[in-house]
Nucleic acid binder design. Structure first.
Lengths: 229, 229
DNA sequence: TTTGAAATATGATGAAGGTCATTTTTTCAA
DNA sequence: TTGAAAAAATGACCTTCATCATATTTCAAA
């Protein structure tokens, strides 16, 4: 159980910061962020931002899990990304100066800090390491999304599920994957019923082990060969 | 017919530059680019770079059309983007310092200039307008790709074709769309046969007009309503 | 601990679209 | 201009997966 008060989390000792985009900041800069950011406790299924709203800053996940998704025409969600501790969300649309085309919502209770747009942009102007880190990150994500598109277009649901599970294993490591069947289906891009049937297959084939929601991968090798990578 | 010699194209008078990312450069900077770039004539179906190779700079399309694509497991191409005059290609992987995950190939004969990696990165360091333009561009593309993924996951081939045609109308404007059936299918993410059948339907419904390869949209409204946007 | 609601699971069915085989048309080089 | 190769088109068939209906399990609040 996380601390539910709005206690300030100090960036300087934030365990998630080192492997994050803000890992490059010097002590002065960290102090500045620390003084200007706000910290919030989010319940499970709480929204960080909605499609159509305008970005006012960036969210920095200290502890927790956030899904980034789009709602299609019939309201069905397509999950684009799942962000975990140390990741920053919400800055992409901030740069493009357009309203969000995706929404963000916690998957579990989380501690998430918020850095205002101006503060963040100023930091980027004055800190080339941060700036280049962001550019690199954006580029990497572009290439991940190209893979995502190609998978969607050319692979069967079964193959996509294998691919998605490999991805989720890393996200949840060392814990078992813990997502609702619906979210999982919305990540793979299929109907919930189809996903459930495939999970059953995987279970029967000894690839995974399931305890209610929690999915443990038993045979990573097989998953890789199924995903075709 | 384009000029086939490797004649130097001067950036200063390049008609494609104004609405490109390099539109922000001052005269000095343009002179510098102009002095350090190389210009090349590309035949139809000529490769700019391959999946797996390392980026050595950026390509700037003076005149022509380039497809950006990935090859799936069975060799089937998935087209991710079609770039036209004024666009720059090949810089995404340059920032992420990873090998290309996509390949680029001309769709028609083209004049394309090349700016080396170091020259380009130096310009980015010293020119905030260029830099921000690039960041903005990367962010926009990320959001386009999120749409692309959601479309792939949730829409029928018919709906995706409508969506793709709207996109291609802008790319080819004011000319008719001029892509092989196979490329079109590989953009929509379907089998060539399925695509051909759907084109026939669209033709019969009066949405498009076809002269061999060339497709003219007659009823843009209908396309929009089909695409569900 | 009970109870109702939400999540998960299973079955039956049909449509969308992929694959393979074959024909027709277009393109391009000799 | 013609002939061969590539591209486009059509047909037949069959697999994958979405949808709808319903049953069962899990969870959380009273």
């Amino acid at each position: 159980m996380l601390e539910k008060s709005h206690k300030h989390i100090t960036c300087l000792t934030c365990a998630s910061r080192n492997n994050s985009l803000l890992g490059s900041l010097c002590t002065d800069e960290i102090d500045h962020v620390n003084a200007h950011k706000s910290c919030n406790y989010f319940k499970k299924h709480q929204s960080l931002f909605l499609e159509g709203s305008f970005p006012r800053g960036v969210f920095c996940i200290n502890q927790g899990m956030v899904k980034i998704f789009q709602r299609g025409d019939e309201g069905k969600e397509q999950i684009i990304h799942i962000a975990k501790s140390g990741e920053m969300v919400g800055f992409r649309a901030m740069f493009s100066e357009e309203p969000y085309k995706v929404a963000a919502e916690t998957l579990e209770e989380s501690n998430i800090c918020f850095i205002g747009k101006d503060d963040f942009l100023n930091m980027m102007d004055s800190n080339p390491v941060l700036r280049n880190g962001i550019i690199k990150e954006l580029s990497k994500e572009l290439s991940d999304r190209a893979d995502f598109i190609t998978n969607m277009a050319q692979k069967s649901v079964r193959e996509r599920l294998a691919f998605t599970m490999i991805l989720l294993m890393d996200v949840y490591d060392p814990e078992p994957i813990n997502l609702s069947r619906e979210d999982l289906a919305n990540f793979v891009g299929t109907a919930t019923e189809t996903l459930i049937r495939l999970l059953k297959d995987f279970k029967e084939e000894g690839i995974i082990e399931v305890h209610t929601r929690k999915i443990t991968v038993l045979n990573k090798e097989k998953l890789f060969s199924l995903a075709g990578k």
